[in-house]
């Protein structure tokens, strides 16, 4: 069937608008990349748009040498890896029993959990509890209060319950216990949903900001978001520079841009591998509701 004139216009406009939206997502980012790789003079005079002007790694050099970004980077890694592992483990521990038909009071537990999605105690009472437990200034204050996201738990639960019951009946007849069933059969079959939820938790921990701002006072424990934020807020981006020649060559924009790239790069590295999974994961959530 040939496209009518009206359809041709429709498709043309559609492609054009999508192209513009895509550009709007990619151009600001290219600008940051260019800023981080340009020399100070070009950055200050506003010449840099999408390509670096006066190509140099100077911003990165001063970022790594003059700010505690490397320390913050390792803090990010620690927060993200341990946090994602803990959250994923406890989410499985919640979702798996709730997906089993023979589990006692599963309706009650599910309702009690969903209730916390629509009504919460809020920031101050949560803070007082974290303080009371002595978790302030330790990463447990980042991991424990947000350990399980009920939304993620529901996605995982519906994935587990959609696994055909013939599979686990067969396993049970062969004398497979609940734990073996979980580790040998359910989890290997649930890789897409596990990857999706690990990605959601991982990104949450990697970008953690408010929790670090609230619970972490020791600057050596700061993660990159809070460090970069404090760099943006303070006029002197770089803390200890003794060499005046270096300071003359520095621009806050250049260093901030370099810091943004350091923050984003790990996400960009894992993103392509996980994209197909999270699309599937989000869709699952939508179908079950």
């Amino acid at each position: 069937m040939r496209a009518s004139n009206g359809e041709k216009v429709f498709y043309g406009v559609n492609y054009l608008v999508l192209l513009l939206i895509t550009l709007s997502c990619i151009l600001p980012f290219l600008n940051i990349v260019a800023l981080s790789l340009s020399d100070a003079k070009a950055v200050m005079s506003g010449q840099v748009s999408l390509l670096p002007v006066g190509f140099t790694f100077f911003s990165y050099k001063s970022l790594f040498e003059g700010t505690p970004i490397v320390n913050a980077f390792w803090n990010n890694i620690e927060i993200t890896l341990i946090g994602t592992f803990l959250s994923l483990a406890v989410t499985i521990m919640a979702a798996y029993p709730l997906s089993r038909k023979q589990f006692y009071a599963r309706r009650f537990f599910t309702m009690a959990m969903v209730f916390t999605m629509i009504f919460s105690g809020g920031l101050i009472p949560t803070y007082l509890i974290v303080q009371k437990l002595g978790l302030v200034n330790s990463y447990y204050s980042l991991w424990l209060p947000g350990l399980v996201s009920t939304y993620n738990m529901l996605i995982m639960r519906s994935y587990f319950s959609n696994i055909p019951s013939e599979i686990d009946e067969a396993a049970r007849i062969d004398g497979c216990g609940e734990l073996r069933l979980l580790f040998r059969i359910m989890l290997p079959l649930s890789k897409p949903v596990l990857a999706t939820i690990a990605l959601f938790y991982g990104v949450g921990y990697w970008n953690a900001f408010m929790s670090v701002l609230i619970y972490i006072n020791d600057t050596s424990l700061y993660n990159m978001t809070v460090l970069v934020q404090s760099m943006i807020m303070s006029t002197t981006a770089v803390q200890d520079f003794s060499d005046p020649a270096m300071i003359a060559n520095l621009t806050p924009e250049g260093i901030r841009s370099a810091a943004v790239i350091v923050m984003v790069l790990p996400i960009l590295l894992v993103y392509p591998f996980l994209q197909k999974y999270f699309v599937k994961g989000v869709m699952l959530g939508s179908i079950k509701g």
């Binding site: 406890v90 521990m93 919640a94 798996y96 029993p97 537990f109 009690a112 959990m113 916390t116 009504f119 919460s120 105690g121 809020g122 101050i124 009472p125 949560t126 007082l128 509890i129 437990l133 424990l144 209060p145 947000g146 350990l147 399980v148």
Partner: peptide
């Protein structure tokens, strides 16, 4: 047994703050 940590989490970090209101 598997569910105990989950119950603890919801009691301490979800329901106790609601009580703290």
């Amino acid at each position: 047994i598997m569910f105990i940590p989950v119950i603890l989490f919801y009691l301490i970090f979800r329901y106790a703050p609601i009580g703290g209101l």
